[in-house]
Design a protein around this nucleic acid. Structure first.
Lengths: 206, 206
DNA sequence: CCTACCGATCGGTAGG
DNA sequence: CCTACCGATCGGTAGG
């Protein structure tokens, strides 16, 4: 019965990653000090090294976790059966769901991975490439089914990922659209276009 | 006649801003030291302070310059006469032109402005708000002319700016599309959509 | 996880 | 723009 009172105990490594992720997301990797992280975690800076071996270790863990999260969200969509249009929408929703529900990890993955040393950056670059290939597959499926028609699949991919990535810059969890509603809204624009039937304005003086 | 030999002299403040902009863009504000900048500029770190009064001064100048550059590019488009569709395309082209031809300034403006102190961040926030309002005006013009039809003008603006901003993450000046061609490609997708005439896949087992 | 500390580097200054 | 430097803070360690 007294276990409800046990707070601030039994902090796990996950707490530490969460704290670091929040701070890196807010102030960037280089803008966050070891002492910031330790202080937010409620310990002294030297004590951090009982859990990690370097600041960059912390960054790599978060970035790698971010990469895996995006991959794990998209892979079942690409491999699934069904209509290519629906799958594309599901892919965008999966991406936006990661960005909105794991905003810190997504932001650190997207923004701070370049702070990694060459070797670890290469590991992440490979996962980024894999993620891009998954998107190409997803688009290729919709195109081969005739559900998507475009002369510029590459720029359609760039457009979708741009809009999906940029979500972390403006999205606020409280009171906004759900990730699914967001994906639907963006997909509606991209699928049907926004061109009206109005005529071009007459050249002035004509 | 000997003036052709006078090199590495007469460095101006603009050289310094360019150097700082390049380094901030590459490694971020916090990832760049005063000594990095001085060294790339060919002087010692203490000598920088003959030109600037603090590292944050340097950042503010670059970010503010970036804000003004985006505003100056978009304002004539919004105020100009003509077809709302063409103006929207011109607005996107103007934005992408800034990002691609002044990539360092654009990146520092978009990425590093949050490193500013509260007061200066507020100055930039106001210019960001102004820029957003300009985009809303531009969209409203196209909508009132009936050239643009959408239930979600806010998300159309977000989509266009997302795709415009993210350009700095992947664009490489050599061998890529021109800013105008890029804007045309993205606008084509957004105006006409990419929905094919294919039928939805039949439910499996149906 | 703390005490106590390390060498290196940070942004910045005085005086020329 | 250099010489010569400052106090503060950085990431990290030894020993408990």
């Amino acid at each position: 019965m007294s276990e409800g009172l046990v707070v601030n105990k039994n902090r796990t490594k996950n707490d530490l990653y969460e704290t670091a992720g929040r701070l890196f997301s807010e102030k960037g990797y280089h803008g966050t000090t070891i002492r910031d992280i330790a202080s937010a975690h409620g310990i002294l800076s030297g004590s951090l090294y009982a859990h990690i071996s370097s600041k960059e270790d912390l960054l790599f863990h978060l970035v790698d976790d971010g990469a895996d999260t995006f991959l794990a969200a998209l892979e079942p969509v690409v491999q699934g059966e069904g209509d290519g249009l629906q799958k594309l929408r599901d892919g965008l929703a999966a991406h936006i769901r990661v960005v909105t529900t794991q905003m810190n990890i997504a932001k650190v993955f997207l923004d701070d991975w370049t702070a990694l040393g060459a070797e670890r950056r290469k590991v992440i670059q490979e996962k980024r490439d894999r993620y891009e290939r998954l998107w190409n597959q997803l688009l290729a499926q919709g195109i081969s089914q005739g559900r998507i028609v475009t002369d510029h699949p590459k720029y359609l991919r760039i457009l979708l990922l741009s809009v999906g990535n940029w979500v972390y810059e403006w999205y606020r969890p409280d009171g906004g659209l759900t990730p699914e509603a967001l994906a639907d809204t963006f997909m509606d624009i991209v699928l049907h276009g926004v061109l009206g039937r109005g005529e071009p304005a007459a050249p002035s003086g004509g």
